[in-house]
Amino acid sequence: MSSTAEPSATLLDTIALIACGQREGKTRACRSCARKARNLLGIATTGARGTLPGVPGEGGRDHRGGRDLRLG
């Protein structure tokens, strides 16, 4: 029988901070990104990165004003 472990609060906080635009000095994600962390973890674990806008490296746009997130 397989069981699914609950992700730790620290992991969800880290995912939310990355989604919100992690940078030096920023320690917390906005409320909107914090609410999305569990779903983002699910997407990341299934390998479905290209399905969401705003995922760096996938040509997405930043959720706070349309900044282009593509690298290079």
Rank of each mutant, 00 (worst) to 15 (best):
M1S: 13
S3E: 14
T4A: 15
T4Y: 13
E6V: 15
E6W: 05
S8I: 08
T10G: 07
T10E: 15
T10F: 09
L11I: 09
L12Y: 05
L12C: 03
D13H: 11
D13L: 04
T14Q: 14
I15P: 00
A16L: 08
L17A: 02
A19W: 13
C20M: 04
C20F: 12
C20A: 10
G21W: 12
E24C: 07
E24G: 07
E24P: 10
K26E: 07
K26W: 02
R28I: 06
A29C: 02
A29P: 09
A29I: 00
C30W: 09
C30R: 12
R31I: 06
R31E: 11
S32R: 13
C33P: 00
A34Y: 06
A34F: 06
A34V: 01
A34C: 04
A37W: 07
R38L: 14
L40W: 15
G42R: 12
I43Y: 14
A44C: 12
G47P: 12
A48G: 08
R49H: 12
R49G: 09
G50N: 10
L52C: 08
P53H: 09
G54W: 09
V55P: 01
V55R: 08
P56K: 04
G57S: 05
G57L: 08
E58C: 09
E58I: 04
E58S: 05
G59C: 07
R61C: 02
D62A: 12
G65A: 00
G65Y: 03
G65N: 01
G66C: 00
R67Q: 10
D68L: 08
D68I: 03
D68C: 03
R70G: 04
L71R: 07
G72P: 06
G72D: 04
